[in-house]
Nucleic acid binder design. Sequence first.
DNA 1: CGAATGACCTGTGAGC
DNA 2: TGCTCACAGGTCATTC
Length: 290
Amino acid sequence: MPELPEVETVRAGLAPAMEGYRLTHVETRRGDLRIPFPQDFVARTQGRKITRLYRRAKYLLADLDSGETLVIHLGMSGRMSVYSHGKRRKLGNYVYDMAPDGAGTGKHDHVVFETDAPARIVFNDHRRFGLMALVDTKTLEQDKLFRAIGVEPLSEDFNTAYLARALDGKKTPIKSALLDQRTIAGLGNIYVCEALFRSHISPKKLAGAISREKLAPLVAAIKKVLKDAIAAGGSTLRDHAQATGDPGNFQHHFLVYDREGLPCKRTCKGTVKRFVQAGRSTFYCPKCQS
DNA sequence: CGAATGACCTGTGAGC
DNA sequence: TGCTCACAGGTCATTC
């Protein structure tokens, strides 16, 4: 599911039910996610207050009042769903439904948190590429999971100068370079395809061979497509849902992704092609991306 | 060293 | 109806 806009959308929907609240009950229902839970996961989370909920790259991070940070990655198919206790309830700008019978006991419901919002938060991930971990908050950025991660694309640190330096001399195609989390944090297959289309750059172009004049439009396109996607609640192809259960809407704004064989949305009269690059589908218009 | 490949896991939709 | 195949938002270990 989730690239930066989807994770950011989930974060925004979780915050009213988690931030500032206490985890009154924690249950792990299945331990074999991508990284198995620590044995004492419940002991280290239950009873703790969440002081801050934020995002780094495609990770959701919840600082606990114990000095540890709960790290959550949604993998390809992970969801975090919030259900209100007792009645449908508005918290912040979100309205949360009551839990249907059996919420949190499904086949792929791996973790259930109760908070004193009061709400039940269910982590569901049928492919189990996701993970939860606990790391020391003070040394989070040095942790194995984070120490090699590149800049946040929506920060001021991500600019033409940074990208020029990051791509300099790289002989890998630009598509692969942008997917590499060490270059930029949070881009995935959809938004790389969309950003390259929007800046007229072929995904096959070698990263180090992109002209200086094309870097500024690429940086701008990345920021714009991510912001627009966040505003739309992310893209729902199959699995992505917001914390309220609602789908995202940005899939209706794709210009190339998942449009194989359809006409290019520009006036070039080209046709969108799909091919496999580094094991992933790439969508592009050969006529107006070079 | 950097870059390419396949493995991890389940579900779904297309085609026969 | 039911089979088989291709494919899906990500990362990581292994190989060249």
